[in-house]
Design a protein around this nucleic acid. Sequence first.
DNA 1: GCGATCAGAT
DNA 2: CACATCTGATCGC
Length: 469
Amino acid sequence: MSSFAGRMKEYSNISLDRFDRENIHARAYFLSHCHKDHMKGLKGPLLKRKLQSSRTVRLYCSFVTKELLLSNPKYSFWEDYIVPLELESPTQISLVDEASGEKEDIVVTLLPAGHCPGSVMFLFEGGQGNVLYTGDFRLAIGDASRIEYLHSGSRVKEIQSVYVDSTFYDPRFYQIPSRDVCLNGILELVRNWICQSPYHVVWLNCKAAYGYEYLFTNLGEEFKTQIHINNLAMFKKMPEILNYVTTENKTQIHACRHPKDEEFLQGNRLPCGSTASDGTPLQIISIKPSTMWFGERSKKTNVIINVFHVYLSLLFNFIYFLLTDSQLSQSQSGCSSSTRLSGSQTPELFSEETDEETSVSSEGQQSLSSSLSNHMSQNQNSPVSDTVILQPGQSNLIFTETEVHQDMMDLPDSQTSSDFDIPCTPESKIPGSQELRELYKKLASGEDLCHCKTGCSSTSQMMNHNENA
DNA sequence: GCGATCAGAT
DNA sequence: CACATCTGATCGC
């Protein structure tokens, strides 16, 4: 769950993905995507009243997010207060204090985040520098380098702070399979199941509101069918999705939901209630698309497939791309800067120093060697800082998820602080701190990293077959 | 009767 | 315990 309080230090009079408490008084609201844990407060009466009394405050999001939001009647009061923005189209926004008339202009650019339909990252440019808020995102290697608005000419823009989804900021999530690998695995699995008889059906156990659409469209296209879902309202203006979904239940592929869907499955029934008309019991394979391939121990789910988030090695790649390269271009272009890169050009991410003062974003000069592991430990009875500076210069990395894992760099040799074990991705291993160190050095030296194994088509790599299934 | 918060669940 | 929710109990207005 997102633990981000809603405000960024550079532009503190706007709120993102949080709309409760103090955020109500922001001069503008930004919604990165339409998942509930990023919408806290968004249907609250306090916010509703604020909208009616303000002449200037608006909610900014993508067109698709607006459509998804308004398809839920609980949010229909937003209709007149949403300003949808095109992707990759810098837009100037005036942030007005209605009491004093004081005004600040910023330019915002929406960048596709690859997390679910309509999901974006926000790039803000203004008097307090360039700031990137990623929301939840799932990019592949190389994607960031293709985003025009992260560049200025041939160089990467200097980014003051990155507010980043850190859900999988943990060595145990070093590798998770790519979307393509997952999709191909599902296609193969579904093909081998539904070809057996008309009574062999597939149930996709989709927990979140959005994010499975690429599954629906690909399955629909591959098997020339539609996928049964509970209702179509949210996709009514998205024909490219609507073509592949239906509310009629005569299909072999279902993604329907019911509060008691587990009970339905016990009785060989789908959550939509459908059974074979001639009384033949359905053979149901249940597939759970989730980032958490290990979370289901209840015998109910046959196969778990992962979706949604970026994973650690890619996160490093992304952060490296943003932070180091912009610093590099800064020094190369001779811009005024107090920054100097060390000889190796390798940030001391894994320094053993214990200088606490480097942890929080202080003004002015910062140490070249702020330690990541320091920020992971709860010494001095203080809460874990969600700000980590891992870069020479002024760039900050700020996590927006629940908590930063305590034992980030402590595996596997000195496994002391972990209260529980998370199984590794099937057939991948946990990288030790030495391996991570080397990975980071490779990233810093600009080596191209590709994690595709040759011939990695095996579905077993991504699927966790439950023995009781 | 609604919202906020929390425990418990998948 | 993590995902992204959803449901139900309890408390306060």
